[in-house]
């Protein structure tokens, strides 16, 4: 089963991405008000879902697992690192596609809207996380400090979001579910939107898995380099 998931993940991610593209670009009709610009809805919300919820949620859970002594393992640390790297990429893409949508809609590339600003702040925090990892060589120190930083960021996110939301907000309201739980998107557009969420989630899983494997091999390489250096030193001392 594991092998099947491992083998199928990449092709499934690719197939669902292609299907989203075909549905979003050729099959769904343009929006009555926004025209073709509305097709960004098949990319932007799914990117934000991966960046803000899936990736960051994974990183937070993995960090908590690392900090909990009973579940502490380098696997959790590597998963957290992989998830944050993917989160950083998707936060960048979310801001980019948001700007592309905002320019014709709001007339500017950037507005001090709550969601935009808190996403940007989260992006900078993620860069900080990656900088922190590169500033510590000892794997245990790096893992522990990064895990605390990730938890601290998770606690900070709602505070940042509410502070900026109360400060000012302009962002378009919820598209799929309003406060009254009625759908604001229908037919092929709704299905394509759902498909895009599936496609981006599969891409996220595939990317995290690939990044995890690289981190695992890097750690293995470091260990074997260290072993080789120790053997060489012992041989040198013996001779």
């Amino acid at each position: 089963m594991k092998l099947l998931i491992r083998r199928a993940l990449g092709p499934l991610a690719l197939a669902s991405s292609v299907a989203t593209f075909v549905m979003g670009y050729f099959i769904t009709p343009p929006d009555k008000v926004q025209g073709d610009l509305a097709r960004l809805v098949y990319i932007h919300p799914a990117e934000a879902w991966v960046a803000l919820y899936l990736s960051f949620g994974t990183a937070t859970i993995a960090s908590a697992l690392y900090l909990w002594p009973r579940t502490r393992s380098m696997v959790a640390d590597r998963v957290a690192e992989a998830a944050v790297e993917v989160a950083t990429l998707f936060i960048g893409l979310t801001l980019l596609t948001g700007s592309i949508w905002g320019r014709p809609t709001w007339g500017v590339w950037w507005v001090w809207d709550a969601r935009l600003t808190s996403t940007a702040v989260l992006g900078v925090l993620m860069l900080g996380y990656l900088a922190l990892r590169r500033a510590n060589d000892d794997p245990q120190v790096r893992a522990k400090r990064s895990a605390v930083f990730a938890i601290l960021t998770a606690v900070n996110i709602p505070i940042i979001h509410f502070s900026v939301m109360w400060w000012k907000t302009l962002h378009q309201g919820a598209t799929v579910f309003t406060e009254n739980r009625d759908l604001k998107i229908h037919g092929s557009m709704a299905w394509t939107l759902l498909l895009s969420f599936l496609a981006f989630s599969l891409n996220f899983a595939w990317m995290v898995r690939a990044r995890y494997r690289i981190a695992d091999r890097e750690a293995g390489q470091r260990d074997s380099d260290l072993d080789a250096a120790l053997v060489a030193r012992r041989t040198e001392t013996a001779s």
């Binding site: 900080g128 922190l132 500033a135 940042i160 900026v164």
Partner: peptide, 17 residues
């Protein structure tokens, strides 16, 4: 490494609220 420059990168975004 470079704690002096790392600190603003970590703390300033969190100080926004």
């Amino acid at each position: 490494a470079n704690a002096g420059t790392l600190l603003p990168a970590l703390a300033l975004p969190a100080f926004a609220p």
